[in-house]
């Protein structure tokens, strides 16, 4: 499957009035509600079979170093199978880290959509702020990240074919990432 690449510093995003941008934006909003309510089986339905889902480990490096992620290491580096195993685990009665569940809110903003050289694929950038609250006496946690998504139209429906979520902290201030960005 061809995977589109877009140079966002050179390409112009689609106007906000473009129906493709509106569809992409709506996709992200719908997905957020699904992730917030932890309806993970429904979330898997939004992913293509060849999904690549990555959250690199961010590092502090010099401005001119040419990299700002850890060589070869990620927090998530998933395919459909490993994501579905993670989802299956949450469905057992023994995934203690999310039972009782966290209260989650995925805030998505600054959405830009780019057309690609593949007709059925859109490249979408967005900013994510994830709020997570656990228990009644712990401080809540945040994750701030930039998402770069590739959405592909399959059977008339947009699906997520690739996500790279680049976190803005090198040290994650959260007890684990038993959540999806």
């Amino acid at each position: 499957m061809a995977v589109s690449e877009v140079d966002t510093s050179r390409s112009k995003p689609l106007p906000f009035t473009d129906i493709r941008h509106q569809e992409a934006h709506q996709f992200l909003v719908e997905e957020s509600y699904i992730l917030d309510s932890q309806r993970y089986d429904d979330w898997l339905e939004l992913l293509t079979e060849d999904i690549s889902y990555k959250v690199p480990v961010r590092v502090t490096s010099a401005r001119s170093a040419g990299f700002d992620t850890s060589p070869g290491m990620a927090h998530f580096d998933e395919d459909k199978y490993s994501l579905s195993l993670r989802v299956a685990r949450f469905a057992t009665e023994h995934a203690w880290t999310e039972d009782p569940p966290s209260r989650l809110r995925h805030f998505i903003t600054n959405v830009r959509t780019f057309s690609t050289d593949v007709d059925d694929e859109l490249f979408v950038q967005s900013a994510l702020l994830l709020f997570r609250s656990r228990g009644d006496n712990r401080e809540p946690n945040f994750v701030s990240a930039m998402r770069e998504d590739l959405l592909r139209r399959e059977d008339g429906m947009l699906k997520l074919a690739r996500r790279v979520a680049i976190m803005d902290e090198s040290v994650v201030r959260m007890q684990n990432l038993a959540i999806f960005l």
Binding site: G72, F76, D77, S82, A95, T97, V172, N176
Partner: peptide, 24 residues
């Protein structure tokens, strides 16, 4: 092996997730 690590341990590992919940 790297894939196995990510699935089981580390910040996203399915083992480690539950450990940390206890320790906190």
């Amino acid at each position: 092996s790297y894939k196995g690590y990510l699935m089981c341990f580390g910040s996203t590992g399915m083992f480690e997730q539950d450990d940390v919940e206890n320790w906190v």
